[in-house]
């Protein structure tokens, strides 16, 4: 059987998905990146290696560390996360017209019509309402993040919270707390505020039509899902593998790439035996002071990026 692997290395989580030729999901893995993408990639590969006994015919990478991951694994396709998420969404829910995606530090909206992306948006200078902020609030309230969404559903009278900015949202939450509102109502209020912020910010001017699917790590939060349904007046579908959709999309793209190329560049799972590390330096060749990054496999430089001019292009 032919299998394809997608690896999505994001700010908060590193996800791996393996699909078969018919694009059915065989395996999935969700790991925290914990600020160390190289370690997360190695750990993820080692874990998934024990679970698969079939040959990997192609690999794709995506996410903010897609280049790094691509170099280490030997990817057949390195794609941005917007395309990867769109591909996954239309594979899992054919006919989907709107994709809401909220990850660790970014959020996006993708508008599809007839299976083709026609518009997209991504948060710019504000990360209010993304996973990292929810994580932080959960730990401040001493509630495990997994229970955060469930609590919101138990609210009777959600409080009003300013969701424009996460710093002010937090002060607002503290204020409501000190007034004596219960935790459920505060969390529900926060969910609503974040959804409004998302729709005004990322979703501004986008035509949101059903079927709507909600994916990314934050889709685990039922409170946010419910807030979306209420605000949009539409049913919001959370797909079974909502947390690894980027990886699924990347695997589908890998399958396409390999079909075209006729071979894979995958280095094999043994690639984890090598020691990978990165080091950076500030180039003082001109007043741009580029931060150039070297990626090493054992002691050999295998990739380099970060400079504005071709000076450091050759490895």
């Amino acid at each position: 059987m032919k299998a394809y692997m997608g690896v999505d290395v994001g700010s908060v989580s590193t996800n791996i998905a393996i699909i078969n030729q018919d694009q059915e999901i065989l395996e999935k893995l969700y790991l925290r990146t914990q600020g160390q993408p190289i370690n997360a990639i190695k750990k993820g590969l080692m874990e998934i290696k024990d679970r698969v006994d079939y040959e990997i015919s192609g690999v794709g990478t995506t996410g903010s560390a897609r280049q790094l991951a691509g170099v280490i694994i030997g990817a057949d396709t390195v794609k941005n996360e917007i395309t990867a998420h769109a591909v996954a969404a239309s594979t899992v829910v054919p006919g989907v017209q709107t994709v809401l995606e909220i990850g660790g530090q970014d959020s996006k909206i993708i508008v599809l019509r007839d299976g083709v992306v026609v518009d997209f948006g991504m948060n710019t200078v504000c990360a209010a309402g993304t996973g990292s902020f929810l994580d932080q609030q959960a730990s401040r309230l001493n509630i495990p993040i997994e229970e955060f969404g469930g609590l919101a559903l138990q609210a009777n009278a959600p409080v009003r919270i300013a969701g424009r900015c996460s710093v002010f949202a937090e002060s607002d939450m503290i204020h409501k707390q000190q007034l004596g509102h219960n935790v459920e109502d505060i969390i529900a209020g926060l969910s609503q505020a974040l959804v409004k912020n998302y729709l005004n910010n990322v979703g501004q001017g986008k035509e949101i039509l059903g079927p709507v699917i909600f994916q990314g790590g934050v889709a685990a939060n039922d409170g946010i899902k419910e807030a979306f349904e209420k605000e949009l007046g539409l049913e919001v579908i959370v797909p079974e593998y909502y947390d690894v959709m980027g990886a699924i999309g990347s695997a589908v793209l890998a399958q396409e790439a390999v079909n075209e190329k006729g071979r894979t560049d995958f280095k094999g799972f043994d690639t984890t035996d090598f020691n990978y590390y990165a080091s950076s330096f500030e180039c003082e060749g001109c007043s741009n002071y580029c931060e150039v990054i070297n990626i090493y496999q054992d002691d050999e430089v295998i990739a380099r990026w970060g400079s504005k001019c071709p000076k450091w292009e050759a490895v």
């Binding site: 903010s64 794609k79 941005n80 917007i82 395309t83 992306v117 026609v118 997209f120 991504m122 710019t124």
Partner: peptide
């Protein structure tokens, strides 16, 4: 303060979108 990573992601997605269409 604009980050280059965000810009590249958007450009790539935009070109993908056109290609796809």
């Amino acid at each position: 303060h604009t980050g280059e990573a965000g810009l590249v992601t958007r450009l790539e997605a935009f070109v993908d979108m056109i290609q796809w269409e």
